[in-house]
Amino acid sequence: MLITQLRAIDIDDGRWSDYRARVTTLPQSYRAVVEAIEQYLLAFGRAEGDEAARMFEDLADLFEQCAALTAPVTTIVGSDPAAFVEEFLSNYRGDTLLRAQQLLTHALADACTTAALQSSR
């Protein structure tokens, strides 16, 4: 399933391997949270390619920095982990969301044009 998810978001294998290696060096409590966030992002994130790779790299950066400071995990995610992840994810939806909106707009315009042409015959 993970391979399918990674192919769907088109992350370079080398970058993914580097990210995963970084995660495995985190203390257990940080690693567990990162892996839970990772699963959420793979299931519900809309980033692809370089944007997705950057998102996971930034996630590793964030938790590495907090681990270095020995900050509690709750300092990072707060009292509402889902809100934290959605806020984090909102930083990486720009290009992908815009592209999806443009595809939707064009598809609807094409469908309307086709329908108008067919009804005028």
Rank of each mutant, 00 (worst) to 15 (best):
14 G>R: 08
13 D>A: 10
11 I>G: 03
94 G>M: 10
23 V>A: 08
46 R>I: 13
71 A>C: 14
68 A>S: 13
47 A>R: 02
95 D>L: 10
46 R>Y: 07
11 I>D: 03
59 L>D: 00
57 E>M: 05
28 Q>C: 14
61 D>G: 06
63 F>I: 02
100 A>D: 04
63 F>P: 06
10 D>L: 10
81 P>L: 04
25 T>N: 10
103 L>R: 10
91 N>H: 12
89 L>R: 13
34 V>F: 01
21 A>G: 09
84 F>Y: 15
93 R>Y: 07
45 G>A: 12
35 E>F: 04
53 A>E: 01
68 A>V: 09
29 S>H: 15
91 N>A: 15
36 A>N: 13
16 W>C: 01
75 T>N: 04
12 D>A: 02
100 A>L: 13
104 L>E: 09
40 Y>A: 08
12 D>M: 02
92 Y>K: 04
87 E>N: 13
8 A>R: 12
81 P>H: 07
99 R>T: 04
34 V>A: 00
32 A>R: 15
65 Q>P: 02
102 Q>I: 07
13 D>W: 04
66 C>H: 11
14 G>W: 06
17 S>V: 04
51 E>S: 05
7 R>N: 11
6 L>I: 07
38 E>L: 11
36 A>H: 11
13 D>L: 06
40 Y>C: 12
104 L>T: 05
5 Q>N: 08
37 I>Q: 10
81 P>W: 03
16 W>Y: 02
64 E>F: 04
77 V>L: 13
49 G>T: 00
15 R>H: 00
48 E>I: 06
72 P>H: 11
13 D>E: 13
